[in-house]
Structure formats: structure tokens, C-alpha cells
Simulated scan of single mutants.
Amino acid sequence: MSDLVFDAVSVHYGHRRHGLTAVDGASLTVPSGQVVGLVGESGSGKSTLARSAVGLAPVSAGRVLLDGTDVRRLRGRHRPLQMVFQDPYSSLDPRMSIGDSIAEAMPREAGRGADRRRSEIARLLEQVQLDPDRAQMLPGQLSGGQRQRVALARALAGRPQVVIADEITSALDVSVQGAVLNLLRDVQRQLNLSMLFISHNLAVVRYLSDHVAVMYLGRIVEAGPTEEVLGDPRHPYTRELLASLPGHDSAPLNGTGPPEAADTDPHHPPSGCRYHPRCPVGPLVHADRTVCRTRDPAEGAASRPHLAACHFAATDDLPYPTLLRGDRTP
């Protein structure tokens, strides 16, 4: 079993009163052997939540658990949880050969002996569909797609139980994004890895993920099986993300919905529902829905469809787009 659990995790930067809470009480489970897609616009806290699992962001409250053990108690260089970062150009040391970069991440027993080390490097490069002869090359001699494959091989060198992939195709040319995504899907299935896949692209998340979670302003606002969430979204923010996808006739909901809609300041989030200042079914449109301004919808999320943090998640106030498995390829 390799469940990764974010248990009411908060990440706060700066002074208590004047700092920024990038993640606020987020709870999410990545089940063993499955892929959870985490989506949301830039600044929603996706990457910060991921970084909290590998010790790159300070956990101010809550816990990150791997098979019931707090990840902060995992000692040693080779942890069972590895991360592949967004930018393939900065995630590798430009002065080290790609073989040395991969070897650096190996458990001690795997890299013991020159022949064994070379054999393991070759195996990992082949696993990510790169010629083992490239082991002596520097990162600057590779394309962006090849570098990202090396970054994946480096993560796999640690023999992880869980991999976190943070926007790993967003910096790549469109022509190579699909190949990297197919590789990631194949490797996850072959090794039965648990995976947290972070993206702003719902179509890509639908392609890879068994479950999807939607994040807004530091909080998880909707989560569930991918087909259910994207086929019947319950939170208006999820509907907005779907409406913004290319090919949908609907305009983004916040562009045509409530008058005086405005983005919120993450340093000073609004009371009640954090989405209400731009919500197309909230108090800016329905004056009687004052509950959105005063009560946190997360309190009753467990009883709503898809754990939606919306007081009116079960209502159908306006038509909305869907994204089912047969609708789109990445």
C-alpha cells in the first residue's frame, strides 16, 4: 500500500498577521496505485501543496502521511516519494552528465560498483525511452522533452512508491507534450505507482487521472472520480474551468456572469465562501444567498456531491459544460 494523504495541510509564509496562507486546511488522498489530478488556476496553491509533501514548503498545520507515517519522519536521501518539476531546464545540474544526475538519486545498494551503476543507468534511460548512450551527455545537449524524460528517470532511480508530477509538460513544445504524457501514463501503470499529477489543463488531467481534485485560493473545492467530477461538476469554479477549455462554446463563467465580479486578494481572502466575489450563482446574482458571505461551505462538504465546498452544490442554476472520457485527447 502506498497511500499519500494530505490531512488538513496548511502552508503559511511570512508573519502570522501579514503573511500569505498559500494552502489552507487542504485534505486530499492519493490512493495506492492510482493517479489523482490536481487542477486550478495559477496561484491556487497546487504546487505549494505538492512541495509540502517533499519538504520544500513548510507545513504550518496538519500532516502529510505516506502509508500512515508523517513524511517529516522519513530519513535519508532516498525517500519513497519523488517529485518531477515543471521546468526541465532548471531541474538538472547543467555541469553533471545525465548519467551522473540519475546515479545521484539511486539508493546506495543500486549504485554500488561501476558496472552495476552503468547497468542501472542504462535500464532507467531505456525505461523513459532514451538511448543509454546519452548517459555521458550534458543537459544542455538535450531538448526540453529529453530533459524531462531524464528528470523522470532520476525520480524513478529513487525507487519511489509515489511520484508527484508538477506541470511537467507546460514548459514543453506542444509537439512533444503528448509523447511525454503517454510515457508518464505507461510508467505509472507498469510500476503501479501512486501519482499526484498537477496541471491547469482539465483535458490532460482527464486523460491521465482516476480521480480529480479542484483547488481554489488554497482550498480543495471539489474532488471525486474523474468521470463524475468532469461529467457532472458541482462547484461553479469547476464549471468555470471547464467553460474555459478550447472547443467549448461557453465563455468563462466569470466573464459573463455576476456584475462587479472581481478576483480576490490571497493575502486577504473573503469571509464565508472564498469564491463568492466572482461566483455566477452566488450573492452577486442571487441577493438572498447571503450565506455565501458568512458561512464557510467546507463545513458541510462531506454531505454534498463530490465533497463540493459550495452551499448550493446540488442545484442546477445554469447550464454548464462537461468533459467526459470520450470527448477529448490531450
Rank of each mutant, 00 (worst) to 15 (best):
M1F: 10
L4D: 03
V5F: 15
F6K: 00
A8M: 07
G14F: 12
H15E: 15
H18W: 13
L20F: 12
A22S: 13
A26E: 07
A26H: 11
P31H: 11
Q34G: 04
V36N: 00
E41L: 01
G43N: 00
S44I: 00
K46W: 00
R51Y: 03
A53R: 08
L56F: 14
A57C: 06
P58M: 05
P58E: 12
L65S: 11
D67G: 15
G68I: 14
L74G: 08
R75F: 01
G76Y: 09
R77I: 08
H78G: 10
R79F: 08
P80G: 14
L81I: 12
Q82D: 07
Q86F: 07
D87S: 10
S91Y: 07
D100C: 09
S101A: 15
E104T: 13
A105I: 10
M106G: 02
R112F: 14
A114P: 05
R116S: 13
R118W: 13
E120V: 12
I121Q: 12
E126M: 04
Q127D: 11
L130P: 02
D131L: 05
A135I: 02
A135E: 08
P139M: 13
Q141W: 08
L142T: 02
S143T: 04
G144R: 03
Q146L: 08
R149G: 02
V150P: 04
A153F: 09
G158H: 01
P160H: 08
I164E: 02
A165F: 10
E167V: 03
T169W: 00
S170V: 03
L172D: 03
D173S: 04
S175A: 11
Q177F: 08
L181D: 00
L181C: 01
N182S: 15
L183V: 01
L184P: 00
R185Q: 13
R185I: 06
R185T: 10
D186P: 00
N192K: 14
L196H: 10
F197L: 15
S199L: 07
H200P: 00
N201H: 09
A203H: 05
V204P: 04
V205C: 09
R206V: 05
Y207E: 11
S209C: 13
D210I: 04
H211P: 06
V212M: 10
A213T: 01
M215L: 10
P225V: 06
T226P: 08
T226D: 03
G231R: 07
G231K: 06
D232N: 12
D232E: 07
P233Y: 02
R234I: 00
R234S: 12
P236R: 02
Y237I: 05
Y237D: 05
T238G: 02
D249H: 07
S250H: 13
G255Y: 05
P258Y: 05
P258R: 15
P259S: 09
T264C: 11
H267L: 10
H268L: 09
S271K: 14
H276Q: 04
R278E: 02
C279F: 10
P280C: 04
R295Y: 02
P297Y: 01
E299A: 14
G300F: 01
A301Y: 01
S303F: 06
R304S: 06
L307T: 11
L307Q: 13
A308S: 15
A308Y: 07
A313M: 08
G326Y: 12
D327L: 12
R328Q: 11
